[in-house]
């Protein structure tokens, strides 16, 4: 059953609740996913985020936002955290945290950067680094909903070992349900690499994406520079502004 998420007719005040870490998945050398068990989760829509708040033994608190990477159909909520050197929160979440640890969480948040299977038209997802997380929620939801509309993920990583969700993406692309995954590696490519070997640029967006006449829904998530350049190029290519949704990721205080 797909739950209502933030769509419910009665607006629901966000409350902090206690999340318990029920699973940990090492995605890349710098990225870890946290599977969370929540006492009271109203369901979410792919693309939404949560706020989390950590409290130290001395009472010190720190708060950050993380995108939800799991599909609404999934039993648990998954967050994917990239370690930021000298960060305050991300090293804790990506190294120190163990199964059974608890912290506060509120969400789901945001009604703008969301996609559900009910929306018409092709889907074009553009990701840089850990910006793939909310787009992964969309792809997982798309597969669970057995949506066959054409979809493309254009995903930029630094190197092969930095690709998050690599094997799952391969599996999703092999389902033959109209999903195409295009990787580009900006810093280092393995021998025999057949994918892209440069930053996401106009030629890539034009050749891998859908023509404006197909009215694809476009979601761009990643570092500010990627988001600004990709969204501008999509506008220049003739895509409608209201079909382009963006979410900038740090670099943050982490």
């Amino acid at each position: 059953m797909i739950r209502n998420g933030s769509d419910s007719a009665v607006p629901r005040r966000l409350q902090w609740q206690t999340a318990e870490v029920s699973g940990l998945i090492d995605e890349t050398p710098r990225v870890r996913s946290l599977v969370l068990t929540l006492p009271d989760w109203p369901g979410h829509k792919p693309g939404q985020h949560v706020d989390i708040r950590l409290t130290g033994e001395d009472g010190y608190r720190a708060q950050r936002s993380y995108s939800i990477a799991s599909a609404p159909e999934s039993e648990n909520v998954m967050l994917t955290v990239e370690r930021i050197e000298d960060g305050e929160v991300s090293p804790y979440l990506s190294i120190d945290v163990r199964k059974g640890d608890k912290f506060e969480l509120r969400g789901p948040i945001g009604g703008h950067f969301v996609w559900t299977s009910a929306l018409q038209g092709p889907l074009f997802l553009i990701a840089g680094g850990s910006g793939v997380a909310p787009l992964m929620a969309m792809l997982r939801h798309r597969a669970a909903a057995k949506n066959k509309a054409p979809a493309t993920l254009l995903y930029s990583s630094r190197a092969f070992e930095d690709i998050i969700y690599r094997t799952e993406l391969e599996r999703l692309a092999a389902m033959g349900d109209g999903l195409k995954i295009v990787h580009t590696l900006t810093r280092q490519q393995p021998a025999g690499w057949a994918g892209g070997a440069r930053r996401i640029d106009r030629a890539m967006l034009e050749s891998e994406g859908f023509p404006p006449a197909a009215r694809p829904r476009i979601f761009i998530c990643g570092p500010t520079r990627l988001v600004e350049s990709a969204s501008q190029i999509m506008l220049d290519l003739g895509h409608e502004a209201n079909l382009i949704k963006t979410e900038r990721f740090g670099p943050t205080g982490g």
Partner: peptide, 26 residues
């Protein structure tokens, strides 16, 4: 939203949690 030490801004949707402390709608 994320406190950020960089001068690059985030999108308005990042402030959703903070705004929800004041408003009953999104």
């Amino acid at each position: 939203m994320q406190p950020h030490t960089n001068d690059a801004p985030l999108d308005g949707n990042a402030a959703g949690g903070l705004l929800s402390e004041l408003f009953a709608f999104d």
